[in-house]
Amino acid sequence: MATTLTKFSPERRNWLRSISGIPGTQIVIPIVVVLLLILALVGPLIAPESQVYRSDILSALAPPSSQHWLGTDEQGRDVFWRIIAGAQASLLSAVAIVTGFSIVGILVATIATLGGKWVDEVVMRVVDAALAFPPIIFALGVAAALGPSLNSAIIAMILTGWPVTARVLRGVMRETMSQAYVENARVLGVSRTRLMLRHVLPNSMDVLLVKWAGDIGNTILILGGLSFVGVGAQPPSAEWGAMVTSAKGIIATAPWAAFAPGVAIAITAVAFGLLGDILQVRFNPALRKR
């Protein structure tokens, strides 16, 4: 009986590990990411409308208290509830943007790798040209065409984000193409399409996964910058990046108004970044422990 008692604890840990395949304390990271995603889905529903949007000049710039956990901003709006409500705009649009331009990047890199010398040359020059567009200026153009909104910011960022992914991934794919197992598969009569889908892409994905996860935090910050110049999320909405940039002017008197959404962005960025690392190990049979 004594042995069963001592073995109880590790076995319970193994249960979580066996369904996720993720060892030890690392399990915290996917849990945080899932919580953030849940928050993004239900946040706007649970945050009280009056705290998030209505100005209350009398209680403006109040420091954190039992009434306002993270204080209030210059309009007297509750920072904590604005963070909860803004999770959707920040997180889901960041995930959408990064996923969107990653997919475009994968497609372009695949075409460049499969197409042979000339196609590769032409595609990569197009990528160079696309890289030359500054995201903010491009977003201003999109906003002029479609009207300023979060949606046009998302479109603009997808359109300016893909060239970097395409460039990085094409380099990785070229390296993967030169691996012996790719040559071996070719020698065994595997067609180019199948070679790409089953050998080259999966073996190039680790780099993309890390880039995807690392881009999430960066994208939230750029979204904030866009709303600062009036292109992204429009004033009353509580988007994290917008909250940070709008609180810039009062940072000396009410640091919490900028600091709290900044921490929210940091937690998100770190969680997704580490998730990328964990997934990279998870999908590599040689690295994952059994």
Partner: peptide, 12 residues
Amino acid sequence: FQDPMGALNPLM
């Protein structure tokens, strides 16, 4: 091929 170490796809 010569190199049996590299000739197999590590993910399959």
